[in-house]
Each structure stands twice: as C-alpha cells, then as structure tokens.
Amino acid sequence: MKTTTFIEAITEAMAEEMARDERVFLIGEDIGLYGGVFKATKGLIERFGAERVIDSPISEAYIVGGCVGAALVGMRPIPEIQFADFITPAMDQIIQQAAKIRYRSGGAWTCPMTIRVCCGGEVGGGLYHSQLNEQWFFSQPGLIVLFPSTPYDAKGLLKSAVRGDDPVIFFEHKRLYRSLKEDLPDEDFTVPIGKAAIRKIGKDITIVAYGLMCHKALEAINVLEKDGISVELIDMRTLLPWDRETIFESIKKTSKVILIQENSKTGGVMAEIAASISEEMFDYLDAPVTRVCGLDIPMLPFAPPMEHFFLPNAEKITRAAKKVMEY
C-alpha cells in the first residue's frame, strides 16, 4: 500500500503501462523535460526517452490525429490535451477519425488510444481554463468517455483504457489532482470500463454524479444524514457507455433520484440520464427526476463570486434533496 494523490496515480498508471508495453507512448504540450503543466508526466522522459515522451508543438489537431495514425499501425498512444478548453482544435480528429475509423472500415482498422484531458472548475481558471466539455463526446458513439473521481479509479481506469481496443477520452478533474489521497495497492490492478461505483449505500434517495461532483455530493450527504435522510451515491466513472443497470437498480430501491453535473444544464450528460430514467423507470418513481447542474451560461466566469455562483455545491444539493423528500 502506498498513499497516492490523484495525479500521482495517473503518472504511475502511465509509467507502469509504458514499462509493460513498448507500444505505449505519450505526446503533448510541455510533457517532456517540463513534466507537464500539472506534472502528470514528471520523470517519464528521463525514464522512457524522447521518442516515447514527445514534446509536441502547439498542434492539437496533430496531437490527436497523429495518434490515430500511430494507433492504426500498432501503437497505443496516450495523447495529452493540456486543457479541455483547447480540445476544440482537435474535434475533427476525435469525432471524424478516432470515433469512426473502426466503423467506416468495417472493423478492419482500429484505434486504441487514450486521450487524457485535464478539465474542470473551482480552481480560479476562468473562462478558458475551467471547461469540461464532456457532453460533446458523450453524444458520439464510437468513443469511450471516462471520468474518474478517486486516485484508485484514475489509475485503474487509465490502465483499462490503455489496454483496451477503443478510443477513450479520459477526463481528469484538476481540482482533484492534489486534493485527494488514497492508499493504493502495490500490485497491478484495473477498474472495469462501463461499470459505475456505489460510493455509499442508502435507501431514501439515489444521487448520481461523476468527477468533482461526487465529492460535493458526499459533503451534502453528511448534512442530510444528520437530518435522517439516507442517500445512495452512484459515481458513474464511465460516462459512455453508461451503466444503466446500476443506476436503475438503485432507483428501484429509493424511488427518488437527483442527478448532479458540474457543466451547464442544457444538453448535458444528465439530460440523457434523466430522459432514460423517465422512459424506463417511470413506474418506480415517487418524485420528479431532479437535476443540480451548472448554469446555462458559458463555463466558467472568472471572478470568484461568479465562479461560485455557477457551480453546484453541497448546499444546492442539500436543498434539492429536501425538496425531493417532500414527495
């Protein structure tokens, strides 16, 4: 066992996969000698050399598109997008190449690639260093979208992504990088893609969240428990393909559900979860499916009061839970 931060878990996952499989390589901006702007690749160029830890020019389309090509001919690339805000220049390569090459080749060409994306608010990053943008990829069949909330899952899911045969977008919430620590096993482990985690067992309300929002939910749950409200917390972990079974089973038990999403509400991941719950779980529900989300304004205004104003927090979640409990 070793106490490991979220970001250390990511560095270790990459180092271990690179040591295990010579097809794995990294490419991204400032990831070499500098070790990445958040130091996720610290020490890796020294260990694996500049051919496998490539400092890229500022070329997001090439970083992703080049990795698609490398994946086609037998490599397992881990490209890094420095900030989710700057994933837009790579959109064509993600959506038209990575997500569709298997489909448009009738399965002949495949793209095992893991795009690491640093994302998320509550770090004072302002309008262009706080975005998530996970919803764009959530609506693209052909992609796997992962969003871990613990060091254990970050390491285990990253390993599963690298070992799998599909293109993965791997979201890393920068607020979690150094604020979380966890004892991780010394031996090799993976976390299965497509399986949600039940973080807390409860009977009155199901809360579904991912990333930083799992931790906001836990804060709220502490308060709610004091009021005698028992909450089941589901951490989605994999956004696409999402784990219907775990969420639906929980709702069968609680009959009430709150969906929490850091990003803006309209067209977000939780809109789809909510729609599916109403299509398939109507008979089990005792209260309206309720969402607590970021505001429908550009994510994320800089000035601290506005940043705070935008984001879901324990207080907003607690209020939503109390309202749902009235049914």
């Binding site: 051919e51 598109g65 001919v73 037998g74 490599m75 064509d92 390569q93 038209q96 190449q97």
Partner: peptide, 25 residues
C-alpha cells in the same frame, strides 16, 4: 490503405501519425 473520412486533409494528419509510429518502431 486507410479508409478515409470526408474531412478534406483529414487523412494527411492521420498518415503523418503512421509515419511517426514507423519512426518510433
């Protein structure tokens, strides 16, 4: 031969990545 997308210049980027891999390999 890589089955192409329609995006003009799309496979120029991808083919360059194949060449990058050949160099690493």
């Amino acid at each position: 031969i890589i089955n192409p997308s329609s995006t003009v210049a799309g496979q120029t980027v991808v083919a360059t990545g194949c060449a990058m891999a050949f160099k690493i390999q």
